[in-house]
Design a binder for these strands. Sequence first.
DNA 1: AAGTAAGCGAGACGGTACGTCCTGTCTTTTC
DNA 2: GAAAAGACAGGACGTACCGTCTCGCTTACTT
Lengths: 238, 238, 238, 238
Amino acid sequence: MAAPDHPHSSQRRGRPRSAAADRAILAATRAALVEVGWGRLTMGEVAHRAGVAKTTLYRRWAAKSELVLDAVAVLFDELELPDRGCLRADVEGVVLSFAALLRRPETKTALMAVLAESTTDEALRSRIRQAIVDRQKRLVLDGRSRAQRRGELPPDPADPAETAQVVDLIFDVIAGAVVHRSLVSDRPVDEAWARQFATLLLDGLGAVSPGPRPCPPEAQGPLPSSAEAGARQRPGER
Amino acid sequence: MAAPDHPHSSQRRGRPRSAAADRAILAATRAALVEVGWGRLTMGEVAHRAGVAKTTLYRRWAAKSELVLDAVAVLFDELELPDRGCLRADVEGVVLSFAALLRRPETKTALMAVLAESTTDEALRSRIRQAIVDRQKRLVLDGRSRAQRRGELPPDPADPAETAQVVDLIFDVIAGAVVHRSLVSDRPVDEAWARQFATLLLDGLGAVSPGPRPCPPEAQGPLPSSAEAGARQRPGER
Amino acid sequence: MAAPDHPHSSQRRGRPRSAAADRAILAATRAALVEVGWGRLTMGEVAHRAGVAKTTLYRRWAAKSELVLDAVAVLFDELELPDRGCLRADVEGVVLSFAALLRRPETKTALMAVLAESTTDEALRSRIRQAIVDRQKRLVLDGRSRAQRRGELPPDPADPAETAQVVDLIFDVIAGAVVHRSLVSDRPVDEAWARQFATLLLDGLGAVSPGPRPCPPEAQGPLPSSAEAGARQRPGER
Amino acid sequence: MAAPDHPHSSQRRGRPRSAAADRAILAATRAALVEVGWGRLTMGEVAHRAGVAKTTLYRRWAAKSELVLDAVAVLFDELELPDRGCLRADVEGVVLSFAALLRRPETKTALMAVLAESTTDEALRSRIRQAIVDRQKRLVLDGRSRAQRRGELPPDPADPAETAQVVDLIFDVIAGAVVHRSLVSDRPVDEAWARQFATLLLDGLGAVSPGPRPCPPEAQGPLPSSAEAGARQRPGER
DNA sequence: AAGTAAGCGAGACGGTACGTCCTGTCTTTTC
DNA sequence: GAAAAGACAGGACGTACCGTCTCGCTTACTT
């Protein structure tokens, strides 16, 4: 996952590359992102923090953007979709979790910077989709099938392309709205906003594909723990 | 509008700043953005293209990000909301116009780069909101009042805060979804997607605030000309 | 003397140049030389100290070196040759006076810097000779004629070119040796050194042109007051 | 010799500094001095001529003055004291050699500029003495002991401090007079002047310390070849 | 008294060089 | 043969001065 492209398949000759160095470099990258942000992040600084020579970095990653992408992609994998009882609550939960992740300094600075770089670099754009975007569509798919199991949503239509289209739309709307609210409008993504947004999304969905049934008020579980876990300082990260 | 902060109110002493230099610099910045993108854009290159000394740049803008912001902000002002007959058509129109604007290389590279910088710079964040985000909320407000005039939407509620909240939500959802679809998912924002998205939005809106009436099919006007005008090379811009 | 080249011959039209500005500029130049030396002396700084615009400087002096030359040349005019009773004592006196002048920070930094500039600028070289070098040959001529009046030296030979040659030699030897001792060898020019040097010079002179008679010990007057006056802070100079 | 301060004692880690770069930089500095003089000499230009990055210069020399000092100091080492048969002829020879060296554009512009800088920089002053002044006292010492071997001068006095004092005086007088004649008075140091000066010096010396015997006319050898060698373009220097 | 021509303080202007920082490559020795 | 160390060529940075150029006054002589 966060490993760089080692075509080490069958053990090559000479000294093998140090896996510890990989881990140290990615951790150092995240730490440096927190402290200085993308703009002042330098390869030399990362190498120094990781106790590694610059050559070792360049042997593994071709560019700063790829290193940073690998360093933060793993953080997005920590997003979860806890079962809060009904679809609306699950949507609110994932919105709040995602917003919490975007509140972490390394995540927001790295994500936006890498996206900015990708506007002029198709290869990087593809790498971002692969490492972050497409991986997190699982959240939509999971929430969808869970709602179907609960009977809140009808089963998938016969044509899988139609499903994919709706999933893409939902993902773009959720991710786009949360990012825009958090990083552009710079206003808090709190429970009130999440509720309002979930309402808009779910009622709107009913028009796009057969809609959800209303959510019984007593069914809502607690807020997902990960929503706040993201904001806490993670132990052992540096 | 795109002028840097000249507190020249009452004629100050000494030689006044050259307005021609301002224009040349902003035009050179846009041209350079098209050719080399944000990453390879240098202050020296901009100065050279504008036939201006570097000091003249730094006298007006403290940082590359502020210069670029001023250079592209004016492009967002060209967005219009042509009357296409009904609210749904107006939404589709603005979505397509905005997507066309984001297809221009200078717009997308500059917007994302400036947003990335702004994640660690509150002053820049505020400046972006002022120069771009808040200015374009006029599109939502215009569309809204036009629909109210048509009778498609009920009049504003008594509490103006409530209206503001809904307008913000709509703006975050539209802008966020279009940006995410265009620049992250990297899939086309075409008429089919715009229709699907407008459906989701308008039906969702009905749940958030009293909803729109259905759109008479015969009422839809033509696509806004600006949707494609943005993608064309602008004459005389060098 | 310290006035720049005003070809104001017959009163020109328009507002006349301010003589106060001239004085303020030269004083500011000397003050700045003391504080920051030649290397960090800037035209802008001088203008600011003098309460004058840069244009006013450039209207009068074409280059920093010319301004500085005019500013310090006047200091060399303060050198005097007090009558200390015999030629040897007069020589020692002028050596000590000159060394005291070279101990002043503005004098030494300006003199050497202007000489350095002049190695690649014939016009400046000529201007230096005119403003400083040739003017101070009067000291040698005065000392010489005084010694002749005392009978310590024979009258000038018939050929004035021969006299000029010897005067030049004496001047080069005195000025050169004192400057070298002070600024290159960086060792003190004290009474002991002055005595030793005067001995070498006067005895050597006897071989070049008919020599001096010995100096009666009781004839030596006091040290010239100007020898130390130069080292004191001059009142009212800034 | 002209190498900058490498405390590389026992082979350090990492890539060692390039000795070829050192040589190229010093040669480029001399060449640039000839062409543009001290005033227009820039670090960037030197780096460019030497085919080296500016950082490589700054890694070795902290300031332009130190670089230039190292670049020209080596030229002063080429001064020699050929045996011309008697002390007077040797003095004339060294005076002419020194004057020839000061006729070279790089030498005069660099020497005076570095001395000017040194008036406000004690460290540089000390570095100049070490690299140029004290090294060339060997010429006085050599001439002196050679004259003693010939019997033209008595052996050194018992007190070595007395000898040092006289040597310093001689050096200041010779170097000072030649520099002043050449660069300040701007008059030629030719054989006639050298003869007159040598006469003054040697006869004067007799009064300071026990003097030289007269020089037998038939003993004078030819002019030192180095007197003119310095003015010729040196082969293979760039 | 009005006109006019230069001087003047202020500060923007096109430039040049500065000395620093970072990039990505290379050459060493050590493991 | 990978790794740490650090020198290397290159290039952009943001700053400091340069010497010139407008500006809107001010000052004195000319009519």
